[in-house]
Design a protein around this nucleic acid. Sequence first.
DNA 1: CAGCATCCCCCGGGATACTG
DNA 2: CAGTATCCCGGGGGATGCTG
Lengths: 108, 108
Amino acid sequence: MLEYNNKKYVCHLDLGIDLIRGKWKAVILCHLHRGPKRFLELQRITSGISQKVLNEKLTELENDGLIFKTIYPEVPPRVEFELTEKGKEIYPALDILEKWSLKYFSDL
Amino acid sequence: MLEYNNKKYVCHLDLGIDLIRGKWKAVILCHLHRGPKRFLELQRITSGISQKVLNEKLTELENDGLIFKTIYPEVPPRVEFELTEKGKEIYPALDILEKWSLKYFSDL
DNA sequence: CAGCATCCCCCGGGATACTG
DNA sequence: CAGTATCCCGGGGGATGCTG
């Protein structure tokens, strides 16, 4: 039994899964793995996510140390999101998951 | 955009993630990877899951073809849950995730 | 362009009690 | 022992509008 952010986890896998939980986090990480992205860019790419949720997820990912953002003091504002080392290291798991899904559900 | 079980997915990763979504599925799969388990056994091991939810998750995993169960016609009833080939092949992703979590959160 | 603030809906998941 | 049936709660996630 471990605890993180006031949440209880039965094991490390439980915790690991929770950090990429929900419909969007994995997808966001996957896109960021191909390079830094801006807010609007991410929203376009993921095609479907609402602005509110995208913000929430990016904040959570940042708080968990998986991504960081760079704010350029320009007008109009420009912000870029990027994977941290920790964020990059989770990618292999997502890659396997995607290939696995492609293998078994390619006909969708 | 793909569809499976009346649900829409933006990509295969989205679908793959969804199949192991929630607090328990990954943990269950991980335990089953070490060998077949009975219902009560799983409940004991996962320590915390309710009977209802365990049933729901096992049913979903079975419908998605990740596990199968064998019912032995005995009294009292005995049922064993086991990974399918498809279920086994998703394990490497879980393994990476767990090791990743252990690396970055070992001090919890 | 980035990102809060609200409102609302649905569903994952817990607790408890009951059956073959 | 392996489920089913209810009831209930919190939160993930969508829609829309407003601001620096």
